[in-house]
Write a protein that binds this DNA or RNA. Structure first.
Length: 301
DNA sequence: GGGTTAACCTGCGGGC
DNA sequence: TGCCCGCAGGTTAACC
């Protein structure tokens, strides 16, 4: 389940594996993979073929590859998406959705890019840039704004421009539960179910704590833990529970060995030994320690 | 306009 | 063995 650390791991792989290449062939194997490209698969292909990829960028869980046309290929991995850089003769994956071939004269490794997605919650689209063109600086890095389809989400907490004070005040203005607020990508992007549970365990804070009762120092501490857990997860190459999340080389992350709450139902809390509980939350799960993270009297879901 | 819910989708594991 | 159901969950449209 890719969240920010997993997407960042993929982005780094794309930076090494596809930036600077010129796309010569695009094969869309499943129309749903480009459903957010409203003009359809043929238009998607036409806008990418012949274009040079200038960079690999990320905000929250969105990835994009700026092109020399001024547009960008925007990707979201959804629940099960993978972007793999593999030899062209490698057999097609069972859920291969889109394949990109590169001009050999621009492609030292001789590999191709594949978008593989079992559950098809993810997808790709070609999107114009807003807030500046997808230019290129002297060192070859892409510069400029963000794709229009990414502009609606908040900065992620690893972005140097992230405004901590604005987050703290925005969080305390909400009238909802703290975990629901953490998952709201328009308040803070990149946080998903796994890292929300981990950060809340570290504070510690119950997931249904009303945001408008959070003291500023607590809100600030929560943000610090979100940053810490994401930074540690990136260093470990992301979290993986099964083969659904992998880097561009197909390698699984190791951070699941470091999780304290998520997926640890009935296992002892690392702080106090009380068995971790699982609660139903928004048609999914929330894991927490009943003793360290007691349910507030006034809970919000 | 902010908060909340359901739908989208496939594979897998458990129960019968 | 095979069928059915629940579960995994990020995003967004639709509803309140």
């Amino acid at each position: 389940m890719p969240e920010l650390p997993e997407v960042e791991t993929v982005r780094r792989g794309l930076e090494r594996g596809v930036v600077g290449r010129t796309v010569v062939a695009v094969d869309v194997h499943h129309p749903r993979a480009v459903r957010r490209h409203e003009a359809g698969a043929d238009d998607f292909r036409a806008r990418v073929e012949g274009r040079r990829l200038l960079g690999a960028r990320r905000r929250g869980k969105y990835l994009w590859l700026p092109m020399d046309s001024g547009e960008a290929v925007v990707g979201h991995l959804g629940m099960s998406g993978q972007l793999l850089v593999v030899p062209p003769d490698k057999p097609a994956e069972a859920h291969l959705r889109v394949r990109f071939g590169f001009d050999p004269s621009t492609n030292p490794g001789g590999r191709e890019l594949r978008f593989v997605d079992q559950r098809t919650f993810g997808g790709l689209a070609v999107v114009p840039m807003v807030g500046g063109p997808a230019g290129q600086s002297a060192d070859g890095l892409a510069t400029g704004g963000v794709p229009a389809s990414v502009a609606h989400i908040a900065l992620d907490p690893l972005d140097p421009a992230f405004d901590d004070d604005a987050f703290v005040e925005g969080l305390r203005r909400r009238r909802t539960g703290v975990k629901r607020a953490l998952l709201d990508q328009t308040l803070i992007s990149g946080v998903g179910n796994i890292y929300a549970d981990e950060a809340l365990w570290r504070v510690p804070l119950h997931w249904a704590r009303p945001t408008d009762t959070l003291p500023r120092p607590t809100a600030r501490a929560l943000l610090g833990h979100v940053r810490d857990v994401m930074t540690e997860a990136i260093a470990a190459g992301g979290t993986s529970f099964d083969a659904l999340y992998v880097s561009v080389n197909g390698v699984s992350g190791l951070f699941d060995r470091s999780l304290s709450a998520y997926g640890r139902r009935d296992e002892p809390c690392a702080r106090c030994g009380t068995p971790i509980r699982r609660d139903a939350f928004m048609n999914r799960s929330s894991f927490s320690c009943p003793r360290c993270q007691p349910r507030p009297r006034r809970a919000r879901y």
